[in-house]
Structures are given as C-alpha cells and as structure tokens.
Amino acid sequence: MLGLPHRTERRAKRERVMSMNRRQFIKIAGLSTLFGLGGKGAFEILRPGMLDAAEHGHGAPALEEPAEPAIRWGMTIDVEKCAEPGVVDKCIKACHSVHNVPDFGDSKDQVKWLWQDDYEHTFAGNENQYMADHVKEFPFLCLCNHCDEPPCVRVCPTKATFRRPDGVVAMDYHRCIGCRFCMAACPFGARSFNWLDPRDALNEKEYNMEFPTRGRGVVEKCNFCVERLAKGLMPACVEAAPQALAFGNLADPDSNVRQILRKRPSMRRKLELGSEPSVFYLV
C-alpha cells in the first residue's frame, strides 16, 4: 500500500512522487483550513467524498479506515481476582520492567504506566455510597483507558499522541515537545511526564534490551503493549495474570472480552465525559 521497500531511496533521490500520500494529504488539508479555505472545502477539492467517510470514523487515522473498525483493542479487569495476593504487584512489575519504566518512588516526578488504587479514588465522582465492603477494599488496576474518543489526542499540537486504527492510543516520543497539554486533557491521570532523566531511576542491569527507555522532557503512558501485539503476544500485564485480566477485540462480538462483558456486570471510569474508555472493570 505504501511502497515501503524503496520509499526511503525514492525520497533520498528526491524523485517526484506524483500521487499524494496520506501525510501530505492531511498536511494540505490542515494548512488549507488554517488559511481559511475552510476544512470541508479543502477536503472536497482534494478528495471528493473523503470527508464523509472520515466524519463517521474516529479522528484523523480513520481517514483510511472503514466506518466500523475491524479491531478495537480493549481490556477487562476482574477486580476480585486482582485481590488475590501478589496479582497486582506481578502485573505492575511485568509492565514496568518490560517497558523500562523508571522508578522515582511516590514523588511528584513519578512515572507510571500501570498502578493500583482503590474503588473510591478510581471512580472518584461516581463512587457509590454504601458500596459493598469487599468492592471498597479490592485493588483497582489503573492504566491508560485507550479511549475511543481520546481527549489527549484532540489537544496534542504535534500528533505526537494519536489513536491507531486498532484503537490503541499511542505515543511518538520522537515528536513530543513536552507541552503537557495531554496531561491536562486526560481525565484519568494516566499520563506521566519525564520531569527528570528516566535513566537515573532505572537499574542498568535490569534494562529490557529489546525496548527503549524514554528521554527527559516527553510524556509517556501505557501503550497496550503494541510491540508485543505486533509479535502476536498478549500485553505483559495480561500474561502476568491471565486469570484476572483479559485482552481482546471489542469490535468483534464473539471475542473473549465481549463474551465476558456479555455475562458479567462491568464499570468504566467517567463515562459522563464521553471519551469511551476501552478498559472495563468487572465487579
């Protein structure tokens, strides 16, 4: 689709590529909007009919996607199973070690992808009075919700954070300018900024050599283990506690997660904000 093998060479030789690729298309569309041509007008000139397709999708990456995405990755978290001893710690450790997440302790500079909180705080604003005692005491695993309508993606000025067609809200650490607008926009507190050099809070001997660290001055968060999904593996946390966590395709009515959700009552965080989280808590 993208003519990948020779793309680099082509660009190096500065050959003129007559057809417009997606990036150029979005750039032109964006610039036309800026110069007052009007977004819709520009779209119509460039690619008639394209806008209607995009409007029914989910944000920018949907330009090339069909109206109903084939994949939307999601997760279910069985909070009761998480209460079994060691489960939560095992998940957090698996995630943080596989992604070289620095440990700044419980300080203002802390970075976290996956962490634990309680019912009252995880569901702050929606917490039920007189909730069953055991639910109140269960540990709730918190992570990026990989929202279907992610506010962080909406505000990012450089497309450093973006929603992939499979629903994963990804980060491009090479492009992030560290403005932290996404942190202000995220209603779930899922994003961490590298206030200091993360390598100072990592043990060099425990590096996962197959995954990078991040640099100072960029925002990071859970990536739903896209690097593992690409190899056909489950996310690290799910692999660490398959009895408690399940991961699958929310867009497929027959997927494991959809089957679970059909049978068990679940909760999601801050639904009133319309961001449509893809992480479901089973209670």
């Binding site: 093998p5 190096a12 067609p165 499979d166 896209v226 690409a230």
Partner: peptide
C-alpha cells in the same frame, strides 16, 4: 549515505503506521 533517512522512515513505519516489517530491494 541514507541510513539516517531509512531509520527515520522505520521510526514512522513501526510507531505511527504499526508496520513492523521491512522488505528490502
């Protein structure tokens, strides 16, 4: 001559386009 551009393109392929397979000439 061109490894820097190849690496740049690889970065966008893997990270932004989710395409982690490169087929060479």
């Amino acid at each position: 001559t061109t490894h820097m551009q190849l690496i740049n393109d690889w970065r966008d392929m893997a990270l932004r386009e989710g395409n982690r397979e490169y087929v060479n000439k």
